[in-house]
């Protein structure tokens, strides 16, 4: 009864409805991409991209542009470069991510401190805010969600082959570079949209946690994918409701729920062994 009343109250606020819609779509997109990123050992790319996106947003604000319109192209280019660097054995990909993310974060903080009088609080990008979701964000997110869901269903077998053995896929004529470029773009878009709710510091958890939790229990690729989506969706919903009930920050609440689910899955995984 209490839960129904709480949900009724939550959905009476239009900004919460927008936040819920955007968050759930981002949760689904992040969980699908997360499985590939974790299995290909690119887990930290989400973290790096969110910091780069923060810097780009700060610069956008400083020059009077809509922050999201600056962040999207910058983050897409950064995603492409970071994935390239991670594949290049001559350059340490992890080091490049750390270098890029800390540099952009520092630039963002400096630009933010120098520019005064902006109407948007940059702290909401750092720690996430449900209030930051506009109608425009919601529509971008819905389009993004449809693109990612359809891409994953249509190209599931190509994604499997590239994630499992990139060299074999390339040798048999699969356009590996094209798929990796698309992966970069989708990851960048998910991070930019997702960090409005989760914040720069926490968005990578939405990519990594559901995939890791699912990998603890499921042993087939398609089940891992499906499990990751369900875990991410449920964790986001519970996190949002907890955030509302206990008046705690949304991003942090969702991460803690994901952490609890991960521990539970790890235990189930051990028992199953």
């Amino acid at each position: 009864m209490f839960l129904i009343e709480t949900l009724g109250q939550m959905f009476s606020y239009s900004f919460l409805v927008r936040g819920m819609i955007v968050g759930m779509i981002v949760a689904i997109c992040a969980s699908l991409l997360g499985v590939i990123l974790v299995l290909k050992r690119y887990s930290m790319i989400g973290d790096g991209l969110s910091h780069i996106s923060f810097g780009a947003m700060a610069i956008g604000l400083a020059f009077g542009f809509a922050p999201i319109k600056v962040a999207i192209p910058v983050t897409i280019i950064a995603a492409f470069i970071l994935l390239k660097l991670s594949d290049n054995s001559h350059i340490n990909g992890d080091a490049a991510i750390a270098l890029g993310s800390s540099s952009f974060l520092a630039i963002g903080i400096i630009v933010n401190s120098l520019v005064t009088g902006t109407s948007i609080d940059l702290n909401s990008y750092m720690f996430g805010s449900i209030l930051a979701i506009s109608k425009e964000d919601m529509w971008i997110c819905i389009i993004l969600g449809v693109i990612i869901a359809v891409s994953f269903m249509w190209f599931y077998h190509q994604i499997f082959a590239i994630t499992f053995d990139e060299n074999f896929a390339a040798a048999t004529g699969v356009k590996v570079q094209l798929y990796k470029t698309v992966l970069s773009v989708l990851t960048a878009l998910t991070v930019v949209i997702g960090m409005r709710i989760m914040g720069t510091l926490l968005i990578s958890s939405l990519i990594i946690f559901p995939a890791l939790s699912s990998l603890m229990v499921f042993k087939k690729f398609k089940y891992v994918m499906a499990g990751s989506v369900v875990i991410s969706f449920v964790s986001f919903f519970i996190g949002m409701v907890c955030s509302y009930i206990f008046s705690i920050p949304t991003g942090a609440s969702i991460v803690v729920v994901n952490l609890i689910v991960f521990v539970m899955m790890a235990i189930v995984g051990q028992i199953k062994k």
Partner: peptide
Amino acid sequence: NYKSFPASVYEVVLSGCL
């Protein structure tokens, strides 16, 4: 990747038909 990848034998073999 082979050491930790979640895939059945059938999924792996079928990917050769891609």
